[in-house]
Design a protein around this nucleic acid. Structure first.
Lengths: 231, 231
DNA sequence: AAAATCCTTACGAAATGTTTACAAATAATA
DNA sequence: TATTATTTGTAAACATTTCGTAAGGATTTT
């Protein structure tokens, strides 16, 4: 699953590249622009979750761009600037920006602030809209917060291990997990000698989740490889 | 119309006073606390729009307080700290805080960040934010103002701890709380060693609230996880 | 058919939750 | 203040659920 999309606007290509590298290594999709105008072009055509904008740019500066974006969107904006004077910060934040980082900045701090802003944005968007912290795959629904599991619209009561195992499989529908992988993910331990512990739990899961456990439709066996939940 | 309410938590009274002066001059309503525990007490009784919390405090520190608040609320939190190391920032932001200001800070910058956080919060919360003084879930009704509790239309007399515990569960119907979470929320203290104090209180609550305490319908057990009140 | 892999069952041990009882702490009352 | 009642925390006994193991059966692959 692709994570959030982020737009980086800076006329200094080196800095834009530096930021891009860190964002990508954190799993984000990155758009780059070398001017405010180019940045606005991208903003209007892409579905962005966060903007990182340099203040000092020729032609249109970052503050103006911020204002224009704010006319139509509440997307989080982090401003970059070489000036560390207090006035700049206030202008930046008062202008509709959500955070402010001074150059030269540490990439790790910037990443932390990116994460923080995204958390805010997505948190609010999930509370106001429908609940998003649930997993739905074909005839299976897992409510993570309420710890409820529904299979074929019937609630089933799972043990902690079963819940964790099913969540693992359902979080990556289509992906095949070997018994070793499942063990390591669920028990958080390396596996040393082979045993059929995981298989027994798969059996118990099927007993609770499948219509006909002898002919499993949700949790499928991939011979010689492992188990999966069909996408 | 009174503006937003803000809670300032700092064991250093001089700093709390300084911040208060600036907040008041900007038109905010201010609550002050000198410890995390006191701050949590206020948080649970007042309708706050923003929290400013010092990290370094005796007994419970600001990060722990932040965690406890985040279990039930998305209110913006700005952390204060004397340490300006990068690690601190990341820990602070990763912990659920929304912004971070290093001491000694300039009051004007803090005010700018307050304004920025409030803008975000109120923008997203334009829909509904009325404070309820009554909680109703299935066969349970809690009158917060008069401290009355009705279960199956019969009034029950609860002790302070029982009342707080039931309110916590009923305020988040469906959400599962671990015994540790319940302890932290009700006692406003970090838990150090496991004991069954919470369980005993659950038992006593069930005795008063359930039709058949041996077969609890309101307060349900989620094995290996915690307790919840069904939505 | 043989080999490899997976399924099923059952049972005891371990983990977790419940209940009860009692003493300490707190609040209410005389 | 002394006395009583209520609330709260702790510990131990009890009950239930969950978990891991092993062994034999079933199915698929070679």
């Amino acid at each position: 699953m692709p994570k959030e999309s982020i737009l980086v606007v800076d006329d200094d290509k080196e800095i834009a590249d530096l930021v891009e590298i860190h964002l990508i290594s954190d799993g984000y999709k990155v758009f780059k622009a070398n001017s405010a105008k180019e940045g606005l072009e991208i903003f209007q055509h892409e579905d962005l979750q966060l903007l990182i904008i340099d203040i000092m740019m020729p032609e249109m500066d970052g503050l103006e761009m911020c204002e224009i974006v704010r006319q139509t969107s509440n997307v989080p904006i982090i401003m970059l600037s070489a000036k560390s004077t207090e006035l700049d910060k206030i202008v930046g934040l008062g202008n509709g920006a959500d955070d402010y980082v001074v150059k030269p900045f540490s990439p790790l701090e910037l990443m932390a602030r990116v994460k923080s802003q995204l958390r805010r944005f997505t948190t609010f968007n999930t509370t106001t809209n429908a609940k998003k912290n649930e997993i739905v795959v074909t005839n299976l629904r897992i409510d993570l917060e309420n710890h409820n599991v529904f299979a074929y619209d019937k609630e089933v009561k799972l043990t902690p291990i079963e819940f964790k195992m099913l969540t693992l499989l359902a979080s990556n529908p289509g992906k095949v997990f070997s018994t070793d992988e499942i063990f390591e993910q669920v028990w958080n331990e390396k596996i040393y000698e082979a045993n059929n512990t995981v298989m027994v739990h798969i059996r118990r899961l099927r007993e609770k989740v499948e219509l006909n456990p002898r002919n499993a439709q949700l949790i499928k066996t991939v011979w010689g490889v492992g188990y999966k939940i069909e996408k």
